[in-house]
Every structure is written in C-alpha cells, then in structure tokens.
Design a protein around this nucleic acid. Structure first.
Lengths: 269, 269
DNA sequence: CGCACGGTTGACCTGTATCAAGCCGGGTGG
DNA sequence: CCACCCGGCTTGATACAGGTCAACCGTGCG
C-alpha cells in the first residue's frame, strides 16, 4: 500500500480520501525532517518559550528542538497508542486532537495553532492516548522529551515554563468541561468563536474575521453537538446579525452579543 | 460509634454527625500543622511518589512535604483566585474541585481521593482557578511548589513523576470530555461508578461496594446532568438489578452490565 | 421533636438529535 | 472547458432524552 513508502512513521491516513495526491508528496515530507533551526530566531518564541533568558540559557534551550517536521493536511502527527518520544511546538498550521472509545465514538479534545504545544498526553504512559491530525499543511518543531527534561534541570526558567504549559492545558480543559457540562448550544458556539478569534488575534490576525479550518462535524464533536445543530446555530447567529458566515469564513459583527450569550444564560438555569 | 471499630484506614466520616467529638479535636488541628512526617514511611507513597528511589533520594524527597493540613468537611483547601503556593497530596478524605463562571453556574471538574494530587491548576497563573472543597474531613500533605521544582532538578525520578502526574490529569480530563461530549445519561453514570470503584479498589476497598461522598447534585454537575436525572438513572439501574442503592451506599451487583452500558451504545449513534 | 436538606418520583416541556432532502462549490475526468 | 460528482453544509419535519417544575418523603441534625 502507498503508506509503506513513508520511512519515518507518519503515513497519510488521508489515503482514504485522496490517494493520488498524497502519494505524490510522501517523499518531500521526509526530506524536511533534517532541517535544523534555532528557537532564538523564531518569531513564535514568546509563545513557546520562557521570556528573559540569558543568551547562554537561550543557547541551551535551542538544543531542545531536534528537527522540524512537516505534516500535510489530513496527515497525523501522532496517533493513539503510538510510543511517546517528543512534544511538538506548532510552527505553522492547525491541528485537532481527538480521543476515541473502542466502539467507534470519538471526541475532538482540542484545536491547536501556531505556538501551541502538543503531545502532553503521551507523558504519563509513554504512549500517546489521542490522535493529532493536521487540518491544514503544518510544520512542527520536534522536541524529544528526555532532552526537555534534561535541559529543564539546568535552566529553571524552562523547567517552570514546562510546568506552566501543562497547567495551562489542565485549566483549558476545565473550561471545556464547564462548556460541555453546563452550556446550551448557542453558548457553546459563541464561546468557541470568541476563544478562536482571541487566540488568532494574539497571533496578529484579525479580531473579527477568521477562517475555520475544521468542518462543522469537528466543531460539533468538540462542542458536544451534532453537525446539524452547529449549522443551525450559525444560521441563527447570522439571522440575528451577530456574525456573517460564508462557508468557513466567519466575520464577527457583534462580539459583545457573543459575550452576552456566553455569560448571561443564568436567568434560565 | 460503631464505625470507629474499623482499625485500618477507614474513618467514620460520620464525624459530621457528632460535633462534640469534633470540637475536642480542634486544638489538635492547629498543632498538627507543625507535625512533621516522612513520605518514606507513608503507606500512600506508591501513589504520590516515584518508585525505586535510593534511600538518599528518598531523603531529599522527604523535604518536599512541608507540613500537613487538616480540612474539615465542607472546608476549602484553596479557592478560585487565591495565590498558588503548593500542591497538595491527599492523605485522607475526599475532595471535589469546581470551576465557576461569572454568572452563578458552576461545574465540578473532578473528585479526588487519598493519594491523588490537587492544585495543579494554580501553576500557570500563580493563582488557583478552581475551588477545592473537602467532602469529608480530610488531611493533606502540603508541598510548596518551589520546593518541588528545586528538588526535582536534583532527583530526576521526581521530575519525571511530576510530569507524569500532570500528564495523567490531562488524559483524565480527555476522558471526561469524551463522556460529556458523547455519552448519554446512563453511560455517564455507569462510567462514573466504574471509575470510582476502580480507584477505590486500587486503595484496598471493595470492588463492588462504595459510599458516595458527594450529593446527587454534585454527581450531576460533574456528569453534565441534573440531579433528577442522576436520581432517575440510579433508580433505573436498581430496577434492572445492576446496583443496589441505599442513600449514598452503592453496591454494584453486575459490573459487567455497567461495562456493557459504557461501551456499546454505538448501535444507536 | 421538628425542621431542613437531600433524594425520589411524576407530569410536562423543550432543546437537541435524528432522519431526510436538497444545495453549493470545488475538484475530477471526459 | 464543461459536466459531473462528492463532500460539506443547510434546512425541514419529527422524535425523544433530559430538563424543568412540583410534590412528597426520609433521615439525620440541631
């Protein structure tokens, strides 16, 4: 089968949908693995790294990143059950992570964008417990975890940074639990959109416009809703003049209305 | 009272019912803050600590625990917004953690029992972002986080252990997201019960019997259900002979049925 | 002893899922 | 280059799980 030609580990997995186009790209993917670049020059460093490092420390931290790796749209960075070796800092592109039960059910647990760290789930059992799928062509910095541990013993700022990143993920998930456990469909979608633009804005994108990189079904999975409900809720927001939606392009016309939707349903419940 | 006759570890938890006896203990509570005990002797150490430490390493790790602290039923170990200083290892007792929105809504994000670590949410912002409430009289080991970081720079097994604990929490929350996002009421409650007995069993309790330390409402909050639904679902399980329920005392008569309920609803969805 | 809180149960309502049909846009093959 | 096809999306009709409201009960606490 086509996938067998990937020497590293990452096979397309999108082979189901696009067999021909994927085959053409497989060799390139591997070549990029040997590319070596320094964090110290990376424009995402304030997202990935602690601030205020001395140049000496910075030099040590540069060693954290082994190589970079490119993932094509639909490809997987890692999958459930796979041995854990590294964390990944996203340089470009957009990922989803999802878990699955034995019976086919699955749940998107998050969407990750440039500057975010992915793979923390793998530490506890030395194996990943979720899938990470690129929703657009992506590039990540591969950071072998034993190297992270080694260097963070020397650079305390890095040590603390790693702890913060993990804690941040825990707190983020608390927020998702709140959303899934106590919000209605409109609130969930409003919270989702606000969260996305806020993160995009922090990366220099518009505060009011965004392109969804995921399908309605993936949004629904993340929000605990069916795709039809996501679609209907979008339509409702459009009717109310809160957003404009054209395909996956969304313009937020009334962010205050979204905020009101998120935290003011208490009159009901 | 009769329950006091269990010598091993199981404390009455009925203390709530007996204020007088509690009053007698209040002064001790304070004194116990200066009480100093070693992890090396703690019977929960395989839950809190890495295994296979040399005695020298063990000595260092003993320094992680500053003091112990007792919390009365209903008391808070820490609250949302409070400055973060320490992680806490639960020695005895049972906690819930919950987050809240500005509008009164709140969500139980977890229930924690002996040997589990609580407080990880506080690392990222130096402030706690949730409340930790004791559901029965409890005692925790206070572990100042700067000391944890310091010692884990020297004892790599501890460093790795801290990472695992945080990763475990992330993975646990993935599971909760799956539950909240894709399961129906019966599945949620079944999964909840199985998870509880499994954790209790790992601590030497029965595989089939448990005492719920939390109200139906708290269970509901955790599971994204209303308390009436929790109650009805319990009743349904009882009718079907899967469990016996008397107040907060639950006996699981047919664990296989619970397992079937958790992962086989795929025929429907 | 009595109150209050937690829990149960019933009747009814509603938000979201489900099922189904049709649309749109982009990529493919003729 | 155009027609077609397919995946993603929208929209409608209907079903149903779980929420809501309300009454009642038990039990443990003051």
């Amino acid at each position: 089968m086509s996938a067998s030609s990937t020497p590293t580990a990452r096979q397309p997995a999108a082979a189901k949908a696009l067999p021909t186009s994927d085959i053409a790209h497989i060799p390139i993917q591997d070549a990029s693995s040997t590319f070596r670049v320094a964090c110290s020059n990376c424009n995402l460093r304030e997202l990935c790294l602690p601030v205020g490092l001395s140049s000496e420390q910075m030099e040590r931290v540069d060693d954290v990143v082994a190589v970079r790796r490119k993932i094509k749209r639909g490809g997987m960075l890692f999958r459930n059950g796979e041995a854990f070796t590294s964390l990944y800092a996203i340089r470009t592109g957009f990922f989803k992570t999802c878990v699955a039960t034995e019976d086919g059910r699955d749940q998107v647990t998050g969407f990750q964008m440039a500057g975010e760290i992915i793979g923390l789930d793998g530490i506890v059992n030395d194996h990943h417990s979720c899938d990470a799928v690129a929703l657009e062509d992506a590039e990540v910095c591969v950071m072998p975890f034993d190297r992270i541990e080694e260097i963070s013993r020397e650079v305390t700022a890095l040590q603390h940074h790693v702890h913060k990143i993990m804690s941040r993920e825990i707190v983020r998930e608390h927020g998702v639990m709140l959303l899934l456990g106590s919000m209605r469909a409109e609130e969930r979608l409003a919270a989702f959109l606000l969260n996305l633009v806020q993160r995009l804005h922090a990366r220099g994108f518009s505060q009011s416009e965004l392109v969804l990189r995921m399908t309605r079904e993936e949004i629904g999975s993340y929000l605990g809703l069916k795709l039809e409900t996501v679609s209907r809720t979008f339509s409702k927001f459009v009717e109310e003049g809160i957003v404009e939606v054209k395909q996956r392009h969304v313009r937020i016309q009334d962010p205050e209305a979204l905020k009101r939707i998120v935290n003011s349903q208490q009159e009901f419940r």
